[in-house]
Design a protein around this nucleic acid. Structure first.
Lengths: 109, 109
DNA sequence: TACATTCGCAACCATACGGTTGCACCTTAA
DNA sequence: TTAAGGTGCAACCGTATGGTTGCGAATGTA
């Protein structure tokens, strides 16, 4: 379920280093299960599952059950909202961010 | 003092809604003191000061003492690092982020 | 059927964190 | 010199959060 405060949820999700590591793994492997990811980090499967839950809460990941395993996939679209927020507040102070803001505003997608 | 893990510090700083509000205020007022900002939020001056401290820890704000007051100014440059991280991990999955990544990689700084 | 995987839920624990109050220190103005 | 405004530091408190263990339920395999 997508939260109301997308930007807040995204920043909150990305604030944890383990979660950022998980995102890094998911960026390479297309899809993974909690048990698979637990083999890569010094965390229990349950710990991984919790992190994946908050990532899903932020809309950064999609769960799909297939048989007896649930596979997670990265869905980084909500990041653009967070980026847009940063470009907005920082745009008038930083040239690079202003360039970014106008770039996003130009709607080149 | 600028932290080693810039990206982590930035996400951590932006994860708190009150801190995002503070950044919003600083984006409009150029510079402000903790007591001034305390008048805008339902927080004590000390609470504001703490938040400003973590913002400074992330390099998002600059402190400058002038007489008996210390004024804070927004320095959003570190946000570009955070944006770059998102564009990198999300680039291969999201066209908008990929466009952003290549935009940043084109070296417009 | 029986057994092994894989998962989700719940309880639990320690620590980090947001927020407050209290107070001492420095700077400006009377 | 006294008083007031503005800060910073430290102690303190409650809750949120990262992390664990334990266990029952569902799915796949021998």
């Amino acid at each position: 379920m997508m939260r109301v405060d997308t930007v807040g949820a995204v920043f909150d999700a990305l604030a944890d280093p383990n979660r950022r590591t998980l995102i890094g793994f998911l960026a390479q492997r297309d899809t993974a299960t909690a048990t698979e990811l637990a083999a890569e980090l010094p965390l229990t499967r349950q710990g991984i599952a919790k992190h994946l839950a908050t990532l899903k809460e932020a809309g950064l990941v999609r769960r799909r059950r297939s048989g007896r395993e649930t596979r997670y996939k990265l869905t980084p679209e909500p990041m653009t909202d967070a980026i847009a927020w940063m470009a907005t507040v920082g745009g008038q102070w930083d040239d690079r961010l202003e360039a970014l803001r106008s770039h996003l505003a130009r709607g080149e997608h």
